[in-house]
């Protein structure tokens, strides 16, 4: 098993990205946190060494995506809309919260792949080659996910 320091370092470095992907894919904070924890339990139990930092990051994100798929397959999961996935809004900034809810709700209308690619790009700031490595897709495909995702998101927001 990996050391606590190693696990804490992985959580500090990639925890947010993992959680973002889980939330984007599952639209349910509770399930997303479950997937997050499963991912790091698997990381802790992984005996093999990583080739480099890119490999470690890509491995974590891929495991998280696969875990999300497993959770989705278990039909018991009750899907709560994305806006319920975020933390409880603070009453002082009601206008911002409403705007964010609309955006997250619109994000639900995108495909899983589009959501994942867009979140990793826009929220976590990863480049297309990095996302391609994490998702196990070609760069052109990832670029297409991001472009089409943005276009669709704009369209949904315009209609709403």
């Amino acid at each position: 098993m990996r050391s606590d320091a190693d696990i804490e370092d992985a959580i500090a470095s990639y925890g947010d990205a993992v959680l973002h992907v889980c939330v984007a894919r599952l639209s349910n904070r509770h399930d997303a946190e479950d997937a997050f924890q499963d991912t790091f339990v698997r990381y802790a139990n992984r005996k093999e060494a990583f080739a480099d930092e890119d490999h470690r990051r890509a491995w974590l994100l891929r495991v998280a995506m696969n875990r999300c798929k497993d959770i989705q397959r278990a039909a018991h999961s009750s899907t709560i809309p994305m806006r319920e996935a975020t933390d409880a809004p603070s009453p002082s900034c009601g206008g911002e919260i409403a705007e964010r809810d609309v955006l997250l709700k619109a994000l639900d209308r995108l495909s899983e792949e589009q959501r994942t690619a867009l979140v990793l790009s826009a929220v976590d700031g990863y480049s297309v080659p990095e996302i391609a490595q994490m998702m196990g897709k070609r760069q052109n495909t990832v670029y297409s996910y991001i472009t089409r995702g943005r276009r669709k998101l704009k369209k949904v927001l315009e209609h709403d």
Partner: peptide, 15 residues
């Protein structure tokens, strides 16, 4: 702009 809005929407989602 859309990317910034998305990042802001996820700003609360942290470990």
């Amino acid at each position: 702009h859309l990317d910034k809005e998305l990042a802001a929407a996820f700003s609360d989602i942290r470990v």
